[in-house]
Amino acid sequence: MDWYQLWQIISAPDNVPIVGLLVIVPFYTWYGLRQARANDRLIQELEANPELAKTHHRKTFPYKPGWPTEVHVWPYLLRIEFLAAIIVTALLMVWSLTLDAPLEEPANPNLTPNPSKAPWYFVGLQEMLVYFDPWFAGVVLPTLIIIGLMAFPYVDENPLGNGYYTWRQRTVAIGAFLVGFYLWIALIIVGTLMRGPGWMLFWPGQTWDHTRLVYEVNRNLPDIFGITSDWGKGIFGFFAVLLFYLVSGFGIHKLVTRSPLNRKIYERTSLIQYLVFQFFAITILVGLPAKILLRLLFRIKYVWITPWFNI
């Protein structure tokens, strides 16, 4: 265990946010899901007792009849905002006094640092370069993520859970987002903590060996099946990808129509909405992990090879 190596990585000033994320993201997940569980219990109670549902104020917060439902922004909200501003300022001040922003030697195009990494919030995309060609990992994938995020509210036809924490009423939407969000964070952490010289995999605490060679020969899927002609590879790849979309689409379909509530939501969803959801779910939420596993477990580089692009 090379503690010095590990310390060098996590103490790099620009990596501090990532170490922060390791704590912050689990904390806020717990914080949100704890409230979701409390609301879910209340919902269960009210579903079982329709009489209570008529009179209950339907929140987990304390309430007595006659209490005003609203408060004045001045001072009840503004004091919180003011306090938040002070706390953030103090935090920033302490952070800035104790830790200096990094500054390396002057830019030198003739001296490439190894590894040379993107800013931490884009390291996830750089990590995807291991598994996909740049046109996909660097351009198409981010575009798909942005479009997929924007499409999110338009494909979620579930009327429940608007404005309160819940898990049971929105398993599909929250589950899908959590998978994507955690995948993004995980890729950043792998790219930062576990990638050394030559973008080779080093476990946290393993010494970065600049002379290490990895004797791994990557294969393409068509080669394994003994397909040699260009046409054969193109057609084979197309059908392999098609099969993947069909199989994972079927799997996702089974998953999102398992519970009675999810079936009800599914019935409200139009065909276009559902297909858009499926496309993004398969491509981003299943496709990326699938390709990562193919590469790490079976050393497969490309599935679909054409003269113009490879996937």
Partner: peptide
């Protein structure tokens, strides 16, 4: 993340 967890992107806030 919070907006997703609370479903705050739903109608009319899409």
């Amino acid at each position: 993340f919070r907006v997703v967890l609370t479903g705050s992107y739903k109608r009319p806030r899409e």
